[in-house]
Design a protein around this nucleic acid. Structure first.
Lengths: 106, 106
DNA sequence: TATATATGCAACTTTTGAGTTGCGCAAATA
DNA sequence: TATTTGCGCAACTCAAAAGTTGCATATATA
């Protein structure tokens, strides 16, 4: 099943995994040790993250190091962009409102 | 129940609602017309979005207009910030790698 | 005042997803 | 070669979440 990046990031454990491997690539076993969770449970999270390309595997003998794929994370940034202008505008309007109230109090 | 902003945004319908009302405030009925979905289903999504403060209600007689709360969306931006430097670094490294390959070809 | 409209809440069903146990395969090691 | 280790896949359980129907409440309108 093709995974949705938004759905992938909605899980706290997967967000923790991303934060960890953004610093250093890890094997599934290493991740399982970090969280109080079986290796298989971590393996499922890895599958989700892999299918939406947020992580990349690097085989090394029988071990697999999973790396963070920063490029994919930019999709979020692009989605957010449609709201960024919006929040800047809302804050400017708030500033204006506050100064108007100030004026009225004088 | 206190809702998680990541979980709130993971649902496609809720993302569509946010995109709509970022442009113009809408009533629950108006939203239900946009999607092929009962009013009650939309109402539940509204509840989720409201509980994590992504939208704000504005009562007008018996109608309720829901507005987009841009400020809350910034929480995403803050979470993304921890990766932003990371992806810039990865791209710089890629640039470096590409120019190295270029040099070798000469 | 009677009726229609806009909404929220509760109970229920169905679907999805997180986590477990059990298994098989491939690589390292004795 | 036999055994251990690292990993993925499949079947299962259980909890959460999406969507439905039904009902209650408040406001507008005839």
């Amino acid at each position: 099943m093709k995974q949705d990046i938004f759905q992938a990031i909605s899980d706290p454990t997967r967000r923790a995994i991303l934060t960890l491997i953004a610093i250093q690539a890890l094997t599934p076993n290493a991740m399982a040790e970090k969280f109080d969770m079986t290796r298989q449970a971590v393996s499922k999270h890895i599958k989700v993250l892999y299918e939406c390309e947020l992580i990349k595997p690097e085989q090394s003998g029988r071990e697999i190091y999973y790396h963070f794929n920063a490029k994919k994370m930019q999709e979020f940034d692009h989605w957010l962009a449609q709201f960024r202008q919006n929040w800047k505008t809302q804050f400017n309007q708030l500033d204006h409102l506050l100064s108007t109230i100030k004026e009225q109090k004088k």
